[in-house]
Each structure stands twice: as C-alpha cells, then as structure tokens.
Amino acid sequence: MSVPVAIASLIQSSAAALDALDFHHWLSGFTEYGQYHITTADNQRQGLPLGLMHALNKDQLRDRIASISSVNVYEPHRYRHILSQTWIKGQGLELQYITPFAVYRITPSKPTILFVTGEYQDRVEYSHSGVRFTYRTVVLDNDMIDTLLAIPL
C-alpha cells in the first residue's frame, strides 16, 4: 500500500513550516482535537506515559506556540528537518504513518548540531478542507536533549 500524496505532503509541509518558524501554518496541519506528544523510544518501549510534550488538543498546541513566541526566554534558533520516506504500519484502526527524521538545530554564531533523530507516528483524518493530523507522536531515539526543547518537532 503506498502513502497517499496528500498525507506525504502534509508531513513534508509540517516539517517545512517548523523550519521556517511559520507556526501558524504548522498548527493548520492539526484537527481541533488533534493530539501531539513527544516522547523517547525508551519510555515508549517501557510503556511509560511521560515524555517531553503532551498536548491533548489544538488549543494546547496554540498555547505552546504562544508561550514560546512571547513568554519564554531562549537563544533564537531554528531547525532543519531531514525526512525519510513515509511508510505504513498496521491496518484499520491501528494504521499509522511512520516517517523517520533527523533534525538539525541552527543557532546564529554557533555550529549547527544534529539535535535529535527519531520517527513520527501519525494518524490522520480527511475532511472537505483536506487531510490533518488527529494523533502525532514524535518518538526520539535518544533520551538526551541538548540545552532545551522549546519549538515543537
């Protein structure tokens, strides 16, 4: 089964939006009740529920964007996502779109670092206005975050 073009392009444009710090566009990729979680492979394997971010709806994602845009203090930086081919895991209600990624972090006047690697585990929903994430889990390969994780992945 091949990945529908609309879904592949949702995943691509979501990464591109973050890389461009276009959070408005990034938010538009989620349904109103879309969930977004960031955790680590270790926690996921052990069935531990806590990770790094935990949003149960789009309002909580809006709060994340508002907080990092106007309240939190950190050195300005941006990401560069390198995505690998999306593939399909499971079927029916269990179906997930899996996209492995590497994210580099670019901070002015510092060397660019390989920030995190991992995979997206996505579920989506079609509506008249297009396809959107209903459930996106970002699973990081490694436990360690360099300095901080402000901007979503």
Partner: peptide, 8 residues
Amino acid sequence: LLGRTSQL
C-alpha cells in the same frame, strides 16, 4: 517511574 528524559 512515569518517564525519564535527560538534558545536556
């Protein structure tokens, strides 16, 4: 334990 992460 509910989860573990690390920060450098």
